[in-house]
Design a protein around this nucleic acid. Structure first.
Lengths: 188, 188
DNA sequence: CGATTCACTCTACAACCGTTGACCGAACGC
DNA sequence: GCGTTCGGTCAACGGTTGTAGAGTGAATCG
């Protein structure tokens, strides 16, 4: 009942963090549009005006809440690549950070989120394509790999398809592995 | 300037169709939430009230505008299956109907659209799984195939990724083909 | 201890939304 | 021809949203 004494700065940091957590959660669950500042404020136990006062606008709150870029790919061979891709799309080890889910949730209906995701996917594709120079159509193949995994992630994390939810992540990864290799392998 | 005389019933049907067309286009472009009845009405050259008068509510308008289910799968062998899947996800022959795009565009932020898509994907998965009884994990494999293709379609049609847009559909289909076979093939 | 800062709340505004009901005029049935 | 139907418009309401500004009370500092 009592957090005995807290410095003013501590309280400030704490409520700011509470607001950001609530925002992340709601943005991930409902997307940018359908998440209202009032709902975020209520979830954080705070007045709506405070959210604006701290973060300036709903858009800036969103930006602050989701600042989580997928780690750039550093793989050099195909097997390592597959593992990194599966991890970066949340198919391994506990799923994606909530900020990334929020971004994905909003990507089809919010212009800014769409731009952000397009750019992130573009970088991923570039990275995968670079590891694939041996094959022709390297960039196209890379794009197919990345978007295919994106689809699996959407079905799993955002749509919650039962057939995917029921399966352990390692099993999914094991099944995807040969498919990705088939996509990236040179013909023949 | 003059469509000389039109029967009242003809005019009615014509404007109703104009409204539905505008609705489909806007829903596909912006999703359910961000599409306003006022915008649909303006695009159709009509008063907003008329849209409600004809269709009852925004939700019913949406339902009427998108009534386009993916054709059920009837494939019995794997090769045929692949072709049907590629076609049903708009990767062949001129893309998806606009109603399907509208549904997909809204699926991450609108509950009703999400339910609809989940059900449609579930049926697809069931169909693919049935054609895969030879393999273990048939349903999981089917789910991965369907969601992977969903991802490619999203990247292509909804996000407009340059790397995919630039490629001819047959090339994409040709590259996906072996990957899908790898996903559906029994181990060994 | 007095003055000031600052975390936080209250109230309110302006814009936009979906939806409604009253109304108008031209096509219809008789 | 005349009364009625009906495609279509107009104006408005009630609700929700993002956001601004004034205010309050407790922690801070000299």
């Amino acid at each position: 009942m009592s957090t005995p004494h807290q410095s003013r700065a501590d309280r400030r940091r704490a409520t700011e963090a509470r607001i950001l957590d609530s925002a992340r959660e709601l943005f991930a669950e409902k997307g940018f549009e359908r998440t209202t500042i009032r709902a975020v404020a209520t979830a954080a136990g705070v007045d709506p005006a405070l959210v604006i006062q701290y973060f300036g606008s709903k858009r800036e709150l969103f930006d602050r809440a989701v600042q989580a870029l997928p780690a750039p790919l550093t793989a050099t061979d195909a097997d390592e690549l597959v593992d990194q891709l599966l991890a970066s799309l949340g198919l391994k080890l506990g799923g994606l950070p909530e900020g990334a889910l929020a971004m994905m949730r909003s990507m089809l209906t919010d212009q800014a989120a769409a731009d952000h995701v397009r750019a992130a996917l573009g970088r991923q594709i570039e990275g995968v394509g670079a590891a694939l120079t041996s094959a022709e159509d390297a960039e196209l193949r890379a794009a197919l790999v990345v978007t295919a995994l994106l689809g699996v992630t959407i079905g799993h994390q955002l749509l919650g398809l039962a057939a995917l939810r029921a399966a352990p992540a390692e099993r999914i990864a094991a099944l995807l592995h040969p498919a990705i290799k088939a996509l990236t392998a040179p013909p023949g």
